[in-house]
Measured scan of single mutants.
Amino acid sequence: MTEYKLVVVGAGGVGKSALTIQLIQNHFVDEYDPTIEDSYRKQVVIDGETCLLDILDTAGQEEYSAMRDQYMRTGEGFLCVFAINNTKSFEDIHHYREQIKRVKDSEDVPMVLVGNKCDLPSRTVDTKQAQDLARSYGIPFIETSAKTRQGVDDAFYTLVREIRKHKEKMSKDGKKKKKKSKTKCVIM
């Protein structure tokens, strides 16, 4: 069974824990209790493949930012979460993405942009803004509501699919490099 290491990042209060708990335990946590770091595991079937999701729910508070490099190193894919009623959390996505790329030393890291709290009427981040940002990053965008469960499975499952595509691409690139290195030079 394939294991996928997913990391949920975003500013404090955007609903990272609520999304994760909704996926794992099928219930909505409405009281806000700032996370330092929590880890969850769940076995699911995605596109006919049974897999184990190892999900790291991270601290959004700035005082825990020193811990970010460590979990970013171990993560295979990242859910970059903002709240649709919090423009600052949307603007912060850029910083999370840049930090992930720096730590992973790669421009090509599996990510999904997630606009959470889409059940709320007080939207300050337009869907088109988020779609445009995701398009500019070359990553999928999904709106979710941890409260109603809308888009929750889709967000995590899409990230797994992005990781699969990335692994497939990397193995193809690896095979191309191996083929090239088999060419021999004969000096007579």
Rank of each mutant, 00 (worst) to 15 (best):
Thr2Lys: 13
Thr2Ile: 11
Thr2Leu: 09
Glu3His: 15
Glu3Lys: 13
Tyr4Ile: 06
Tyr4Glu: 10
Lys5Pro: 08
Lys5Ile: 01
Lys5Val: 02
Lys5Arg: 09
Leu6Trp: 05
Leu6Glu: 03
Val7Tyr: 03
Val7Asn: 05
Val7Leu: 04
Val7Gly: 02
Val8Met: 05
Val8Lys: 02
Val8Gly: 04
Val8Gln: 03
Val8Phe: 02
Val9Gly: 07
Gly10Leu: 01
Gly10Ile: 02
Gly10Ala: 11
Gly10Phe: 01
Ala11Asn: 05
Ala11Met: 12
Gly12Lys: 04
Gly12Cys: 12
Gly12Thr: 12
Gly13Met: 12
Gly13His: 15
Gly13Val: 12
Gly13Trp: 13
Gly13Arg: 07
Val14Ile: 10
Gly15Thr: 01
Lys16Pro: 01
Lys16Cys: 03
Lys16Arg: 01
Ser17Pro: 01
Ala18Asp: 02
Leu19Met: 11
Thr20Ser: 05
Thr20Lys: 00
Thr20Cys: 03
Ile21Gln: 08
Gln22Asn: 10
Gln22Trp: 08
Leu23Thr: 15
Leu23Tyr: 13
Ile24Tyr: 01
Ile24Val: 14
Ile24Ser: 05
Ile24Asp: 01
Gln25Ile: 04
Asn26His: 11
His27Asp: 07
His27Gln: 11
Phe28Lys: 00
Phe28Thr: 01
Val29Met: 07
Val29Glu: 11
Val29Pro: 15
Val29Thr: 11
Asp30Cys: 13
Asp30Leu: 14
Asp30Phe: 12
Asp30Tyr: 12
Glu31Met: 13
Tyr32Ala: 02
Tyr32Thr: 01
Tyr32Phe: 01
Tyr32Glu: 02
Tyr32Pro: 01
Tyr32Ile: 01
Asp33Val: 01
Asp33Gly: 01
Asp33Tyr: 01
Asp33Ile: 01
Pro34Phe: 02
Pro34Tyr: 02
Thr35Val: 00
Thr35Pro: 00
Ile36Gln: 00
Ile36Thr: 00
Ile36Tyr: 01
Ile36Leu: 02
Ile36Asp: 00
Ile36Pro: 00
Glu37Phe: 00
Glu37Met: 02
Glu37Cys: 02
Asp38Gly: 00
Asp38Leu: 00
Ser39Trp: 02
Tyr40Ile: 00
Arg41Phe: 03
Arg41Tyr: 04
Gln43Trp: 03
Gln43Glu: 14
Gln43Asn: 12
Val44Gln: 15
Val44Glu: 09
Ile46Asp: 14
Ile46Cys: 10
Asp47Trp: 06
Gly48Asp: 09
Thr50Asp: 12
Thr50Leu: 14
Thr50Val: 13
Thr50Tyr: 13
Thr50Asn: 13
Thr50Pro: 12
Thr50Gly: 08
Cys51Ala: 12
Cys51Trp: 12
Leu52Gly: 12
Leu52Thr: 15
Leu53Trp: 07
Ile55Arg: 00
Ile55Pro: 01
Leu56Gln: 01
Leu56Pro: 00
Leu56His: 02
Asp57Phe: 00
Asp57Ala: 00
Asp57Leu: 00
Thr58Ile: 02
Thr58Cys: 02
Ala59Phe: 00
Gln61Ala: 14
Gln61Phe: 03
Gln61Arg: 08
Glu62Cys: 04
Glu63Ala: 07
Glu63Leu: 03
Glu63His: 05
Tyr64Arg: 02
Tyr64Gly: 01
Ser65Glu: 07
Ala66Ser: 10
Ala66Val: 07
Ala66Asn: 10
Met67Asn: 05
Met67Leu: 08
Arg68Phe: 05
Arg68Trp: 01
Arg68His: 06
Arg68Ile: 04
Asp69Cys: 04
Asp69Lys: 05
Asp69Phe: 09
Tyr71Gln: 11
Met72Phe: 05
Met72Asp: 09
Arg73Leu: 10
Arg73Phe: 13
Thr74Tyr: 11
Thr74Cys: 06
Thr74Pro: 05
Thr74Phe: 04
Thr74Leu: 05
Glu76Leu: 06
Glu76Asn: 06
Glu76Lys: 03
Glu76Ile: 11
Gly77Trp: 11
Gly77Phe: 14
Gly77Tyr: 05
Phe78Leu: 04
Phe78Val: 03
Phe78Glu: 05
Leu79Cys: 14
Leu79Trp: 01
Cys80His: 08
Cys80Phe: 15
Cys80Met: 10
Val81Ser: 10
Val81Thr: 12
Val81Phe: 09
Phe82His: 11
Ala83Asp: 15
Ala83Cys: 12
Ala83Asn: 15
Ile84Gly: 15
Ile84Gln: 14
Ile84Glu: 15
Asn85Ser: 06
Asn86Ser: 05
Asn86Trp: 02
Thr87Ser: 06
Lys88Asn: 13
Ser89Gly: 13
Phe90Ile: 10
Phe90Tyr: 08
Phe90Gly: 10
Glu91Cys: 03
Ile93Val: 08
His94Arg: 14
His95Asn: 14
His95Asp: 14
Glu98Lys: 03
Glu98Phe: 03
Glu98Gly: 04
Glu98Ile: 01
Ile100Val: 14
Ile100Asn: 02
Ile100Phe: 08
Ile100Thr: 06
Val103Glu: 14
Val103Tyr: 04
Asp105Ser: 11
Ser106Met: 12
Ser106Asp: 13
Glu107Arg: 08
Glu107Tyr: 08
Glu107Asn: 10
Pro110Ser: 04
Pro110Trp: 01
Pro110Arg: 02
Pro110Glu: 02
Pro110Lys: 05
Met111His: 05
Met111Arg: 01
Val112Phe: 04
Val112Glu: 01
Val112His: 01
Val112Cys: 12
Leu113Phe: 12
Leu113Arg: 01
Val114Asn: 01
Val114Trp: 00
Gly115Thr: 13
Asn116Trp: 00
Asn116Ile: 05
Asn116Glu: 13
Asn116Leu: 14
Lys117Met: 14
Lys117Thr: 14
Cys118Val: 10
Cys118His: 11
Cys118Glu: 06
Cys118Lys: 10
Asp119Met: 14
Asp119Gly: 11
Asp119Ser: 12
Asp119Glu: 08
Asp119Arg: 14
Leu120Trp: 09
Pro121Trp: 12
Pro121Lys: 10
Pro121Asp: 13
Ser122Val: 08
Ser122Arg: 05
Arg123Gly: 12
Val125Glu: 11
Asp126Pro: 08
Thr127Gly: 07
Lys128Asp: 07
Lys128Met: 07
Lys128Ser: 07
Gln129Thr: 12
Ala130Thr: 09
Ala130Ile: 13
Ala130Pro: 09
Gln131Leu: 07
Gln131Glu: 11
Gln131Pro: 09
Gln131His: 09
Gln131Met: 08
Leu133Glu: 10
Leu133Thr: 10
Ala134Ser: 05
Ala134His: 15
Ala134Arg: 09
Ala134Phe: 07
Arg135Val: 10
Arg135Trp: 10
Ser136Lys: 05
Tyr137Thr: 11
Tyr137Val: 12
Tyr137Ala: 10
Gly138His: 03
Ile139Cys: 09
Ile139Tyr: 12
Ile139Ser: 07
Ile139Met: 11
Ile139Glu: 15
Ile139Arg: 07
Arg149Tyr: 12
Gly151Val: 10
Gly151Asp: 08
Val152Met: 10
Val152Lys: 13
Val152Gln: 14
Asp154Val: 06
Ala155Arg: 03
Ala155Phe: 14
Ala155Gly: 13
Ala155Ile: 05
Ala155Thr: 07
Ala155Leu: 05
Ala155Pro: 06
Phe156Cys: 10
Phe156Leu: 05
Tyr157Thr: 10
Tyr157Val: 11
Tyr157Leu: 09
Tyr157Gly: 07
Tyr157Arg: 13
Tyr157Phe: 08
Thr158Glu: 07
Thr158Arg: 03
Thr158Cys: 12
Leu159Phe: 02
Val160Gly: 07
Val160Gln: 14
Val160Asn: 06
Glu162Gly: 07
Glu162Ser: 06
Glu162Trp: 09
Ile163Val: 04
Arg164Pro: 06
Arg164His: 09
Lys165Trp: 15
Lys165Phe: 06
Lys165Asn: 07
His166Met: 11
His166Gly: 10
His166Ala: 08
His166Glu: 09
Lys167Trp: 11
Lys167Asn: 06
Lys167Asp: 06
Glu168Val: 15
Lys169His: 15
Lys169Trp: 04
Met170Lys: 05
Met170Thr: 04
Lys172Asn: 10
Lys172Met: 13
Lys172Phe: 03
Asp173Ser: 08
Asp173His: 15
Lys176Thr: 07
Lys176Glu: 07
Lys176Tyr: 15
Lys177Arg: 05
Lys177Trp: 09
Lys177Tyr: 03
Lys178Met: 12
Lys178Pro: 13
Lys178Glu: 08
Lys179Arg: 03
Ser181His: 02
Lys182Pro: 13
Lys182Glu: 12
Thr183Val: 13
Thr183Ile: 11
Thr183Gly: 15
Thr183Ser: 04
Lys184Cys: 15
Lys184Glu: 07
Cys185Val: 14
Cys185Gly: 13
Cys185Arg: 13
Cys185Pro: 03
Ile187Phe: 06
Met188Lys: 10
Met188Trp: 06
